[in-house]
């Protein structure tokens, strides 16, 4: 499964002013980490509403880049330690992939 849809991600960045590329990378990495943590916390607390909310936000974020792997994890059972670790690894890898796509567009 692809981490992200590279063409979609590139088109997202290219459609925006070049000075937005870095802030968008920063925001993406911050949002993904933040909502991943919230999801895991909600799962740990068995707070269904918080889980629904976190899942929704993460899917919204992932939609921007076609981050299929994270979406898959979001809908999976994240109660085990192993699943949580894999999920966080996937999130970090997705962030790296998004930044890799965006990096050439960063003004020199």
């Amino acid at each position: 499964m692809e981490l992200i849809d590279q063409e979609l991600t590139l088109s997202q960045f290219e459609a925006l002013p070049s000075n937005v590329v870095v802030p968008l990378c920063e925001a993406t990495s911050a949002d993904l980490r933040d909502w991943s943590t919230r999801l895991l916390d909600a799962v740990a607390a068995q707070d269904d509403e918080a889980i629904r909310r976190a899942r929704h936000s993460l899917k919204g974020l992932c939609g921007n880049f076609g981050a299929a792997a994270v979406m898959h994890h979001v809908d999976s059972d994240l109660s085990s330690t192993d699943a949580r670790a894999r999920f966080l690894d996937c999130v970090e890898a997705t962030i790296a992939a998004v930044v890799a796509i965006a990096a050439p567009l960063v003004p020199q």
Binding site: L16, P17, V20, L24, A27, A30, D31, G60, L61, N64
Partner: peptide, 16 residues
Amino acid sequence: EDLATNRIVVEGCLRK
């Protein structure tokens, strides 16, 4: 928009 990512995307599109 509550998500910073989406805020940047939407704002960027609008400014374009």
